[in-house]
């Protein structure tokens, strides 16, 4: 037998195979190069459009600190709302999977109602309509309850966003839990674990891995939807931008500025998401 067909010691790579390998490598490098060039051209084109629009860059630069001061509210609303949403999503998912008819029906109705109505309507509901409910309740003898039902704009915004995203995320978490092989539950049961032990120790840690990408996605979407609290006069990013734009009749400049700020924030979040995903995926492929 010739040396280059000796399997046990690995065979020599023939010249034409080497040529093909090099070709594949060059093609891949060329594609990467062209991709980067395309991105650069796109960026230049975008900047040129902005210049062609005769934007007042000086005005944009001067107003930037004022708009940027709103980032605190934007982040505050986003983080509080996502925390509330995560909590509601876990409770909601357990409800949707529950065999208890009361718990299950409440969770299902919550998801259905919230997903079936516009977020904008919900925001106004929390802010403008809730006091009226408080008033009605006072009519039934619950004195002093109206103050409790009249929410500050910030609180109303956090509740509206958290409750709304909680409904969407309920479905994400439910799907994540259901994606885990039933054999895992059986193995946990066979060891004598209770239902909650199984959920906490076996199912949830595995489901978490599955739901991190969609939940990060929701979070990125929420950062932008936090602009809806501007409707209630919270001085966050977009509220400031719109206000300044109107005052100076330079809405285009202000809107582009604030859009870029949101974009940068989302790029950063996406970066963290990728980091988190690699971290979670470390050391384990799927079992089969």
């Amino acid at each position: 037998m010739k040396a280059d067909t000796n399997f046990s010691e690995g065979c020599g790579i023939p010249a034409e195979a080497r040529k093909t390998l090099t070709q594949i490598e060059t093609d891949r490098a060329a594609y990467k190069r062209k991709l980067i060039i395309s991105f650069i051209i796109l960026a230049i084109a975008m900047i040129m459009v902005l210049i062609a629009l005769k934007l007042d860059f000086k005005f944009m630069k001067n107003q930037l600190p004022f708009i940027f001061a709103g980032i605190g509210y934007t982040l505050l609303v986003s983080f509080m709302a996502i925390s509330l949403a995560c909590f509601l999503a876990i409770v909601g998912a357990l409800g949707r999977l529950s065999k208890n008819p009361v718990f299950n029906s409440i969770a299902s109705s919550y998801v259905s109602l919230i997903r079936g109505t516009p977020l904008l309507v919900q925001v106004y509901m929390w802010y403008l309509a809730l006091p009226q409910i408080g008033k009605a309740l006072e009519g039934y003898g619950f004195t002093g309850i109206q103050a409790f039902f009249t929410l500050p704009a910030l609180t109303a915004g956090i509740l509206a966003l958290g409750v709304c995203y909680g409904a969407y995320m309920t479905e994400t978490v439910r799907a994540g839990i259901q994606s885990i092989d039933p054999g895992q539950t059986e193995a946990a049961n066979a060891l004598g674990m209770t239902r909650s032990q199984t959920m906490k120790r076996i199912i949830f840690p595995q489901a978490l891995r599955v739901i991190i990408p969609p939940v990060s996605n929701e979070f990125i979407a929420m950062v932008k939807d936090s602009s809806l609290v501007s409707l209630m006069g919270v001085w966050e990013l977009s509220y400031r931008a719109i206000k300044m734009g109107r005052r100076h009749f330079q809405s285009l400049e202000m809107l582009i500025t604030v859009a870029l700020i949101y974009w940068m924030m989302c790029i950063m979040l996406q970066y963290f998401q990728e980091k988190l995903e690699t971290h979670m995926a470390r050391g384990d492929r799927s079992i089969r």
Partner: peptide, 19 residues
């Protein structure tokens, strides 16, 4: 659960906890 604590079970698909 008392019965399950006293019986070990091995499955065709192993069902080890991958995490």
């Amino acid at each position: 659960r008392d019965i399950r604590k006293r019986t070990g079970m091995c499955f065709q698909a192993f069902n080890l906890f991958p995490h």
